[in-house]
Every structure is written in structure tokens, then in C-alpha cells.
């Protein structure tokens, strides 16, 4: 597992049924592209998060395939519709097989 990986998400605590909300996610990760070389001229191997998913009560909101051209500390902003009270499930998949997860619940206003 890459060191110091910390997911952060911004989700409203309450929403009315059918409301569209904007979600913001950021995960600290160095996203080594595999293109850089170290001081000895050796390629630094690729180590990135290659997939991000967000689901609400099991229903997919977005599923993003990520390639090395995504910046360090990948940031995503997108919209979701909240039909009922429930839980957002955010998942990041690392190249090395580790999976980072965060959950946020939303109540009805």
C-alpha cells in the first residue's frame, strides 16, 4: 500500500428527496506516472490509482478509469441525485491491489 493515502470527500449531510447534489472527492496519492526518471536515469515504476467509483445505495453514480495523466492527489467533482436517505460509497483502486474506501450517509431533510 502506498504511504499516506487519505481519502477526503465532501457530501451534504441532508438533502430533500430527488435533490441533485454536487460531490467533491480528493485522495492524497503521489500518482507516479511511470514516465519520470530518478537521479541515476532509471525509470521510476508506475504507481497510480487506476479506478474510482462512487455509488449511492448500490446504484452507480460514476465509475472513472484513470490513466497516468491524472494529477497527483486525484480530485473529482460530479453530481448525484439523492432519491432517498442512504449512503454514498466511494472506492479507489490502487495499482498495487489496495483498495481505499469511504462511506458518507445522507439523511432526508
Amino acid at each position: 500500500m502506498a504511504k499516506g493515502v487519505k481519502p477526503r470527500v465532501k457530501v451534504p449531510k441532508t438533502a430533500s428527496a430527488g435533490e441533485m447534489v454536487t460531490l467533491k472527492t480528493l485522495i492524497s496519492h503521489k500518482m507516479e506516472s511511470g514516465q519520470r526518471k530518478d537521479s541515476d536515469g532509471n525509470k521510476i515504476p508506475r504507481s497510480i490509482i487506476n479506478r474510482f467509483t462512487c455509488a449511492f445505495n448500490g446504484k452507480t453514480v460514476v465509475d472513472v478509469e484513470m490513466l497516468p495523466a491524472i494529477s497527483t492527489n486525484p480530485y473529482f467533482q460530479f453530481d448525484a441525485v439523492i432519491p432517498e436517505a442512504g449512503e454514498f460509497h466511494f472506492t479507489w483502486y490502487d495499482d498495487d491491489g489496495s483498495v481505499y474506501e469511504t462511506k458518507k450517509s445522507v439523511k432526508m431533510a
Partner: peptide, 17 residues
């Protein structure tokens, strides 16, 4: 990157860096 939007998406828009 490729964004796949699911049933729960509020709009087909996204922002990233």
C-alpha cells in the same frame, strides 16, 4: 481518463485535474 456515468448520476458532468 474515462468517466462512466451510472443511474445515480445527477448530471453527465465532471471536473478533475
Amino acid at each position: 481518463a474515462t468517466f462512466n456515468f451510472g443511474d445515480g448520476a445527477g448530471s453527465q458532468s465532471a471536473t478533475t485535474r
